[in-house]
Write a protein that binds this DNA or RNA. Structure first.
Lengths: 220, 220
DNA sequence: GCGAGCCTCCCCCGCACGGGGGAGACGATC
DNA sequence: GATCGTCTCCCCCGTGCGGGGGAGGCTCGC
């Protein structure tokens, strides 16, 4: 009976890579994929994977928050392997505090990745902060504006407000947003004001910056 | 006759992902992989790929140096698509200046990655953000990597204007920028207007979006 | 010397933006 | 039925923003 794995990462490329690496093993089966933390819980409920390979930096709900939510709301939760690009100790500790069972760098070799998944599935934990620290020093820690991200995630934007923010982040004026959403400009102004208040932004430019910095919208 | 691609990335996971994405296409063939920039030149000599998909951050020889070396030492060099995780102004400029033909984020969707490889193979240049491509059209460039370079350089921001744009992208108002730069607000307004005109932006929000989309400023 | 480009500052002017209120309609929840 | 949150729309009002001009001082290179 193979180890079943759910992949959670906002980059399709990474998901494809993980899938290729893991499915090359006869005893490991990738049973599903999710692109953000918010989609994880229902998927876990349905697929009941043994292991969730979870990215840290994701839109909507990051890996750490998703881990917390998962362990809090799901009975008999899967083991969680946090997968990330390059890390600082804060992330390691935060992830472990949140209840993750292991911690792995994307930079790891395929054999290490496979090994990690097997270990985690067997109930072992896995972490190597030494190599993490070394890599962080080697490549220079870019950090990331976690403050802005946290703000956005905990801001509690409604669906409509998020929609408006997305359009703001595409450079649309209030009038253009109104036309796009088929509502009045006064309505859009209300939503924009709500977005600004919730994000702690002074104007739409700052709101758009927060959207980019938090990963709510991505360049490209 | 399929497009042949050489993958150069120090992360096996990313190579596996790219391979999975690209080989799903009947007209694209991955002919080889390399884990660092130093291994690229002999591989290119032997395999003669149409396109090299090259990571920026790599041990031994980074993607920019490898690009330079490749174009300097190989006859009839392949087209070079720089693939990277984080958008960073220095990298964009440096990579294009080194002679890369395109610039792509790893977080791009599979369809975008495939599209990028095809475009590059056809001799087009590619800058992932639409706004930059738009600039290319506006400035009447003929395509090719010279175009890409020229666009970014000839987008023609002066040093001062670039400085103002950076501050705009940090959410500062005109008055705050003026205070920071120790000049009058009217001066800042002049610079901002120049930036807007050169970027084809209607307001500062669109300018900041362009800054993010072009990699002029990077999230995090 | 002279122009070109850049940085600096100034004027007028229209308007989109954002703050601060309020309010009706609807669905979900209790 | 009552309450809450969301979405919708409205009012007034001040101002920061951006367009369209112009102009002086400075350092370049021709």
């Amino acid at each position: 009976m193979p180890v079943t794995v759910l992949l959670v990462d906002d980059e399709p490329l990474v998901r494809a890579g993980l899938r290729a690496v893991l499915e090359a093993q006869p005893d490991i089966e990738v049973v599903g994929e999710a692109a953000d933390g918010a989609a994880v819980i229902p998927l876990v409920r349905r697929l009941r994977p043994d292991v969730v390979a979870m990215d840290v930096r994701m839109p909507l709900l990051d890996g750490i928050e998703a881990t917390r939510a998962l362990l809090r709301t799901v009975d008999d939760p899967p083991r969680i392997l946090v997968v990330t690009t390059f890390e600082n100790d804060e992330y390691v500790y935060e992830a472990l505090r949140a209840g993750a069972d292991g911690f792995l760098l994307k930079r790891a070799r395929p054999a290490e990745i496979v090994h990690a998944v097997r270990l985690i599935a067997e109930g072992e934990s896995l972490l190597f902060p030494a190599s993490v620290r070394q890599l962080a020093a080697e490549y220079g820690d870019t950090g990331g504006n976690r403050a802005a991200r946290a703000v956005l995630e905990r801001a509690g934007l409604t669906e409509r407000e998020a929609e408006v923010l997305r359009l703001m982040a595409r450079g649309l004026s209030n009038a253009e947003i109104a036309a796009r959403l088929v509502v009045g400009t006064e309505t859009v102004k209300s939503h924009v004001s709500a977005v600004l208040a919730k994000l702690g932004a002074r104007d739409r430019t700052q709101a758009v910056i927060a959207a980019y910095e938090s990963g709510f919208v991505a360049p490209g």
